[in-house]
Simulated scan of single mutants.
Amino acid sequence: MTTTKNTTMTETEALRADLELTRRHLADTVQQLTRQLNVPRRIKESAASAGHRAVQAAGTAGERAKDSARNLPARAKEMPATARQHPKATAAVGGAVALGVGAAAWIVGRGR
């Protein structure tokens, strides 16, 4: 009977060890699910990531604007020659700009 009792204890210990292992695995799984379902934390991480991307995009846009500003005097000097080469296009663009300014002034005037 001693052998049966030792075998039973060994099986019991094995079951307890297996139970403990299962508990640990379950605890890890619950912890991972909790992290994934933590919506406020995920929103903060997403917002921070979007903020970093916006800062990078603004820096790139700023560099492009600086480059364009540096080239503006040269392009302004080219404009009269371009206008002489394409007078109809220049008139059309000028008319569109005047129409836009007039429409904006009319809308602002109506709001008062």
Rank of each mutant, 00 (worst) to 15 (best):
E20K: 04
L37E: 07
A74W: 10
T10M: 14
K88S: 14
K77H: 06
S46P: 05
T82Q: 13
A81E: 12
T34F: 12
V93N: 13
A92F: 02
M79E: 15
K88L: 09
R35W: 06
A103G: 01
V97C: 03
A83I: 01
R42P: 01
A17F: 10
Q31N: 07
A65N: 06
T82F: 15
V108N: 08
R42T: 08
V30F: 09
P40H: 04
Q36R: 10
V97R: 06
A92C: 02
H86N: 13
V30D: 12
P40C: 01
D18V: 09
R41H: 07
D67K: 12
A105K: 11
L26T: 01
A76H: 02
T7R: 02
M1I: 03
I43T: 03
D28A: 07
T22H: 08
T82D: 06
R42H: 05
A83H: 02
T34H: 15
P87K: 00
N38W: 06
D67R: 15
N38F: 04
D18E: 15
T2A: 09
N38A: 10
R41M: 05
N71G: 10
A83Q: 03
M1T: 07
A58T: 04
R112D: 11
N71I: 04
H86T: 04
K77I: 06
A103P: 01
G59V: 05
V39A: 06
L26A: 11
V97G: 00
V101F: 03
A76N: 05
R112V: 09
A103V: 01
E11P: 00
M9L: 15
L72C: 02
T3D: 14
L99F: 14
V101C: 04
L72F: 00
T2V: 09
T90F: 00
K88P: 01
S46M: 09
P87D: 02
R23H: 11
P87A: 03
A69V: 08
T10N: 13
D18A: 13
T7D: 14
K5E: 11
A76Y: 07
Q32R: 09
L33D: 00
T60Y: 14
G109L: 11
A81G: 02
P40T: 03
R35M: 12
A50I: 04
G109A: 15
A89N: 13
A47Q: 14
L19C: 12
I43C: 10
V39S: 11
R110W: 01
L19R: 11
A69Q: 04
Q56I: 08
E20L: 11
R24A: 15
T8A: 15
G109N: 13
H52A: 07
V55W: 10
A27L: 13
G95P: 00
T12W: 10
A96L: 07
V93L: 10
L19H: 13
L72K: 09
T29M: 11
S49F: 10
A14E: 03
N71S: 14
P40Q: 04
L21Y: 14
G59I: 00
G109W: 05
R53Y: 13
M9V: 06
T60L: 09
K88T: 14
E78I: 00
G102C: 05
R75A: 15
A91W: 03
A104I: 11
L99R: 14
